[in-house]
Amino acid sequence: MLTGGGSRILAGVGVVGAVGFLLAMDTGRPEVRLMTKAVPMLCLLLWQWPPRERYARWVFAGLGLSLLGDVLLDLGPEFFLPGLGAFLLAHVSYTAAYLTVTRGLQWVRALPFLLLAVSASVFLWPGLGDMALPVSVYVAVICTMTWRAAAMLGTPGLSRLEQRAAFAGALLFAVSDGLLAIRLFVQPVPGAGYAIMLLYWAAQLSIAVSARGPRAHPASAGHSLA
């Protein structure tokens, strides 16, 4: 993996790409939007390369699928469903990464995200139309991903910083997607696009940070049902 100067160069390129996309988001040419939108995720993928352990490989897959989703969603409304599918698979990949750390059910920690999934689906349902089923499935998957990030807190296998980074990334992703869903299916929110993208990039960076360190091999975390 890149360190030091290489990481700083990638960070600089990623920030330039992000700023370029934000400047072009509402009024820029479609090809400029597409290219600049891809830059931050490409930089994260390069920063993660090569992913040497199971956790890092699943996170890398999630980053790659997110990049695909970014591209598909910016190609036009007809690509919304494939883009949604790419992001759904990205959340499945992140969930698989978190399950390599612990498979403990942590039912108490699951409850808030179960309530979130149900309430979000009910809130969005009137405006979903033909998208009701795929969006509801997506909501369930992202809430599951966030639950599994919460389940890792306090377990062996990741450092405390990495656990917090993964959980923060999951929460930021949920907030970003929640704002996007409100904008698409409830009512337009002025300026929401900027908040959505900033939260999204912060989420992906946080999740990527959680995969940068060497993994321990917990002996019992996978068997706890606490």
Rank of each mutant, 00 (worst) to 15 (best):
11 A>K: 09
12 G>L: 12
13 V>P: 06
14 G>E: 09
14 G>T: 03
14 G>V: 11
14 G>P: 00
16 V>I: 15
16 V>Y: 11
17 G>H: 11
18 A>M: 15
18 A>P: 09
19 V>E: 13
20 G>A: 10
22 L>E: 13
22 L>H: 06
24 A>E: 03
25 M>V: 11
25 M>Q: 11
26 D>L: 10
27 T>S: 13
27 T>F: 09
27 T>H: 12
27 T>Y: 12
29 R>A: 14
30 P>W: 08
30 P>S: 06
30 P>F: 10
31 E>Y: 14
32 V>A: 08
32 V>R: 07
33 R>T: 00
33 R>K: 09
33 R>N: 10
34 L>Q: 08
35 M>V: 14
35 M>W: 15
35 M>G: 15
36 T>N: 11
37 K>D: 00
38 A>S: 14
39 V>L: 01
39 V>Q: 00
40 P>D: 04
42 L>A: 15
43 C>H: 01
43 C>W: 07
43 C>Q: 05
44 L>H: 08
44 L>F: 13
45 L>H: 11
46 L>H: 01
46 L>D: 00
47 W>D: 02
47 W>V: 01
48 Q>C: 13
49 W>N: 04
49 W>F: 08
49 W>L: 08
50 P>M: 04
51 P>R: 03
54 R>P: 01
54 R>H: 10
55 Y>C: 05
56 A>M: 03
56 A>T: 05
57 R>N: 09
57 R>E: 09
58 W>A: 01
58 W>R: 02
59 V>C: 13
60 F>E: 09
62 G>L: 06
62 G>E: 00
64 G>E: 10
65 L>M: 02
66 S>D: 02
67 L>M: 10
68 L>I: 13
68 L>W: 14
69 G>I: 07
70 D>M: 05
72 L>K: 02
72 L>R: 06
75 L>W: 04
75 L>K: 02
76 G>A: 00
76 G>R: 07
78 E>W: 10
79 F>L: 14
79 F>Y: 15
80 F>D: 06
81 L>E: 09
82 P>R: 04
82 P>H: 08
83 G>I: 09
83 G>R: 03
83 G>A: 08
84 L>Q: 11
86 A>R: 12
87 F>V: 06
89 L>A: 11
89 L>H: 08
90 A>C: 15
90 A>E: 08
91 H>V: 10
92 V>Q: 04
